[in-house]
């Protein structure tokens, strides 16, 4: 990798859920592990998230949802990415996501789900290894 290259991550909070702790902690953590994190703040529509991801040319979108609306919102983000030929952007999710919803999330194209107790290093390692893998394709 070129010395100047940085992995760019969009941390987004879709919907009206205002629980920001996880999103902010992950943003700080990834910054301290050398990532460039674009944080969009609360109350993003899924269309806005897709638009931001494209304009910012991010490698990864991290969605943080604690309102129970994760299935609808995530599906809409992924649909939006496909419509914009941007399905190469890695999508990961975090927040309160019940175990039984994880398969559905994965099926719709979420690469990983990180819930309470995950470490930031885990998240960072996942991003690095997944990005590395697909770059070799």
């Amino acid at each position: 990798m070129n010395q100047q290259e940085r992995i760019r991550v969009l941390i987004a909070k879709p919907g009206l859920d205002g629980h920001e702790r996880g999103a902010r902690v992950v943003a700080y953590g990834l910054r301290d592990l050398g990532f460039e994190v674009i944080y969009t703040g609360l109350r993003q529509t899924t269309a806005q998230i897709v638009q931001a991801a494209i304009q910012e040319d991010v490698d990864v979108i991290g969605l943080s949802i604690l309102s129970g609306a994760h299935l609808t919102l995530t599906e809409n983000v992924i649909k939006g990415l496909k419509e914009n030929q941007a399905e190469d952007i890695l999508v990961i999710a975090g927040g309160i996501i019940p175990e039984e919803d994880k398969p559905a999330m994965q099926q719709m194209g979420v690469h990983a789900v990180f819930t309470a107790g995950s470490s930031i290093e885990e998240i960072a390692d996942f991003i690095k290894s997944t990005k590395g893998e697909s770059a070799d394709d």
């Binding site: 990834l30 910054r31 050398g34 674009i38 944080y39 969009t40 703040g41 109350r43």
Partner: peptide, 14 residues
């Protein structure tokens, strides 16, 4: 320190 960054300007441009 890390070379990373938090880019938060979008927050104010919603």
């Amino acid at each position: 320190f890390s070379g990373g960054a938090i880019l938060g300007d979008r927050l104010r441009m919603q």
